[in-house]
């Protein structure tokens, strides 16, 4: 304690002498490191070895507690670490065998996420491929293969972008992108081979509507050009 008082008295004399009482107020809060160490020293000595043994004994239960409740990757059904993990679109994690059994169950809400009741579709589940090795589960034998991920096509490089339009990622939409528009009377002149670059992110209905619209527009242009050519032939 004498050290503290010494520093407190030194400060006001160096600083402004007009207000000597002000530094005394913060004095109760301001300690220097040495005095703090001194204050704590007897306490540390008194507790001494008992704290050492205490920390050693408390360490193990806290770790086991963490094992019990701190697992972030528990399946919401079996409450174990998820094996063959799969995640729903609503973000809830399950073992694939557990979720599959739930979806096959007779329960009226079997097509809903057990946690949040959001609709769950098998094709929209996302498997999680972690690096850890998969422990073989006997349940897998009766459970069908976990749904695979839906991997989009690789992003097209600049060089062959035009050709990539012919292949739909995943190849699911049968309405082709390449549309050939021919004009009956002058096939050699007006046989247009036209490919549309329709944004792939549109829904299939939107895409069809857009294709139909473009088709109508093109045929109108063809018709006009054709009529103009006919008039030109007739006049000359």
């Amino acid at each position: 304690m004498p050290q503290i008082e010494e520093t407190q008295q030194n400060v006001p004399t160096i600083g402004t002498q007009e207000q000597p009482p002000t530094p005394s107020r913060p004095s109760s809060y301001s300690f220097d490191a040495a005095s703090l160490r001194q204050r704590n020293a007897p306490l540390r000595e008194a507790v001494g070895s008992s704290t050492m043994s205490a920390t050693a004994s408390t360490a193990s239960p806290s770790e086991s507690d963490r094992d019990d409740e701190g697992n972030e990757f528990e399946c919401n059904i079996c409450l174990e670490m998820a094996s063959n993990p799969i995640v729903t679109l609503c973000g809830h994690l399950f073992c694939w065998p557990c979720l599959h059994r739930w979806m096959q169950s007779r329960s009226p809400s079997a097509n809903a996420c057990p946690v949040c009741k959001a609709k769950v579709e098998r094709s929209k589940l996302v498997p999680i491929y972690a690096r850890g090795r998969q422990s073989k589960d006997p349940r897998e034998e009766v459970i069908p293969e976990r749904p695979t991920a839906q991997r989009p096509e690789a992003a097209p490089s600049q060089a062959n972008r035009g050709w990539d339009n012919f292949f739909f990622p995943g190849g699911t939409i049968p309405t082709g992108n390449g549309i050939t528009v021919g004009f009956g009377l002058f096939p050699s002149l007006f046989g247009l081979h036209y490919t549309f670059g329709v944004p792939a992110h549109l829904g299939s209905r939107d895409r069809q509507a857009q294709v139909a619209q473009q088709q109508a527009f093109l045929s109108r242009i063809c018709m006009m050009v054709g009529i103009l050519v006919m008039i030109a032939i007739l006049l000359y």
Binding site: N76, I77, L79, H92, C98, W102, S107, P108, S109, A112, P114, V115, K117
Partner: peptide, 9 residues
């Protein structure tokens, strides 16, 4: 009953 979910404990 019919609103049971396996996530309930």
């Amino acid at each position: 009953y019919d609103q049971w979910s396996p996530a309930l404990t």
